[in-house]
Amino acid sequence: MAEKVIEVKKLTKKYKELTAVDHLSFDVEKGEILGLLGPNGSGKSTTINSILSLLTFDEGDIKIFGEEMTPDALEIKRRIGVVFQDVAVFEELTVWENVNYFCSLYISDKATCEKYTEEAIKLVGLGDFKKFLPKKLSGGLLRRLNIACGIAHKPKLIFLDEPTVAVDPQSRNNILEGIKKLRDNGATIVYTTHYMEEVEILCDRVIILDHGKIVASGTNDSLKDLAKIKEKITVETRGISKKFQDEIKKLKDVVSVKSGRDTLVVNYSDTRKNLAELVNLLEKNKIKYEKIYSERPTLNDVFLELTGKDLRD
């Protein structure tokens, strides 16, 4: 059994009447990247801030590295790095100075601190921007700086709260690569997002949150298995009649048929020779189509099915 880095038991946090986190229990194991996935307002940030002892909570126990987490547990805090959802840097300081400043909150030796500063800047690929002030950076670069500030001191446990919101694809890839490197260097990571793809690429384990409760949890694959949909076939075509759609529904293992303007999506509860069958049916009815392809369902589909809500609303 792997070592537990974080243990959360029955965490409940209310803002007045609103229960943002509702009897949430989970563990984070050493060396893994745990994805906390949920739509806006599902309680991801609240959970993280509660774990960090920034927020009061109504109920629950939180242990980090096997010890109770409190606001003055400095020895625990020393080993933690946090990248908050909001960019938190000093406008008055340059990129290098910002990273150095936050690093110096943990590392007292000047030379080590400067070395770590350089390394963090390199990790997020801001080497060319060391002397820039934050307001001169694009959104994506600013996010990268935000990350560098949180992880420069080489923490053993890292919290990243939606570090890729509103970031261009290049920066996003850079950030995801960086996070993988951190894990490979031995850090345990808690990563929140509402992007399905990121979780699929990055995380070893996922917890799906909605209304402050766990809707589902497990590895990527086990979650996909959890969902009824096993295969998803998309047909790019125009104008398929209601009658023909009903005919598809009668095929074996078809769970649902959804028609968009130019597409038709057929969901199956099992993976057999579904594609061949569907192609045959289309040919038989002389229906023209541009493309037809089969996919494994994504976490988004899983979420949709589990909660009835689309993640990206």
Binding site: L52, D86, A88, L105, Y106, C149
Partner: peptide, 18 residues
């Protein structure tokens, strides 16, 4: 201070004593 500025949050979770 954590409740005043974003960077305050960062300082609040760091290993610096109050």
């Amino acid at each position: 201070l954590a409740n005043m500025t974003a960077s305050g949050k960062r300082i609040a979770v760091s290993a610096i004593s109050k």
